[in-house]
């Protein structure tokens, strides 16, 4: 093995380069957000002015907008993802139907987000507008609610795929023990499968959340681009990702640009923490199931 130091050298080098790459990424983001950090400090995270004329920036409305849309999308998507994963991981394991459903569930993950946005603009927005006029709220059509609906369609595959895996991991002997005591399937699911797969289901939701927080194009196209703290679930808003997509190439003031990058940094850390927690739970679940 030692006869070929160059080959191993290349392996090590590429590994080291990854760490440099990520360190560089951190450093770049931080350096470019320094001017706004200096100007506003942590005020960026709780102040709600976004005024390019006076050069005063606080990202609170976008933080609220992001969390609002992402959690609403999760609320919409969880029942669907859970139903799918119970069907595929428990009821229909290995049947033809499960193959078909599995494919139908996975395909949406491959459709580009800009196409979700385009489709949303022409089909979902008018639908929601007519819903809004029935409910007697301002019929914008675009807004948090619309963005969440589209987002939830997009994240179902992510949530479901992990839930299916964890539900499949529930040991047979546990389930069989419950059946032998006379439990029906729904009782087994409620009392054995779900409690056992709880943390995996939670991890699936977290990963879908990480995905929802960072989603840009589809949301940008239907959220209404308003820089205020949304007052209702139908209100137009902006998310952290959408404000960056909208203003990044056109922010003429360096402070404005730097503020946008700081929003990017926050988004980066937020998704990173959520993904890390999710992955840690998965690791624990998987090692728990086998070990």
């Amino acid at each position: 093995m030692k006869s070929e130091p160059t080959f191993k050298g290349i392996l090590y080098l590429s590994a080291a380069s990854t760490i440099f790459l990520l360190a560089g990424l951190f450093f770049t983001l931080l350096r470019h957000s320094l001017p706004s950090l200096k100007a506003f400090g942590f005020g960026m995270f709780y102040r709600s002015v976004w005024n390019p004329v006076s050069g005063d920036f606080g990202a609170f409305p976008f933080i609220v907008g992001t969390l609002f849309t992402a959690f609403l999308a999760l609320a919409f998507c969880t029942p669907f993802a859970l139903a799918i994963s119970l069907l595929l991981g428990e009821y229909w394991r290995g049947t033809t139907w499960s193959g078909i459903l599995q494919t139908l569930i996975e395909v949406p993950a491959g459709i580009p987000s800009v196409i979700y946005g385009f489709w949303g603009l022409f089909l979902v927005v008018p639908l929601i507008r007519s819903l809004e006029s029935k409910l007697h709220v301002a019929p914008y059509g675009v807004g948090i609610f619309t963005a969440s609906v589209i987002l939830s369609i997009m994240i179902i595959p992510y949530a479901a795929s992990l839930m299916i895996e964890t539900i499949k991991l529930v040991p047979y002997d546990l389930k069989e023990a419950a059946y032998s005591l006379g439990a029906t399937r729904v009782e087994v699911i409620r009392n054995v499968v779900l409690p056992y797969a709880r943390s995996g289901v939670f991890a699936g939701i977290l990963l879908a959340l990480g995905r929802a927080l960072g989603e840009t194009m589809a949301v940008t196209m239907v959220i209404g681009n308003s820089n205020f703290i949304p007052k209702s679930i139908f209100a137009p808003a902006n998310t952290m990702a959408s404000i960056i997509a909208n203003e990044f190439t056109e922010a003429s003031d360096p402070l404005h640009l730097s503020s946008l990058i700081e929003v990017g940094v926050l988004l980066f850390f937020l998704t990173m923490v959520i993904n890390m927690i999710g992955k840690a739970i998965i690791r624990r679940t998987v090692s728990g199931a086998y070990g």
């Binding site: 990854t18 790459l21 960072g214 960056i244 988004l267």
Partner: peptide, 28 residues
């Protein structure tokens, strides 16, 4: 140790929102 960190970096990169990647590529 090293593999742990490399794997972590790859995980972080995978979870990074694409819009943030755009910012970085712009700056670089």
């Amino acid at each position: 140790f090293f593999s742990y960190w490399v794997r972590l970096c790859i995980d972080v990169l995978q979870g990074t929102p694409s819009v943030v990647i755009g910012i970085v590529a712009y700056a670089w």
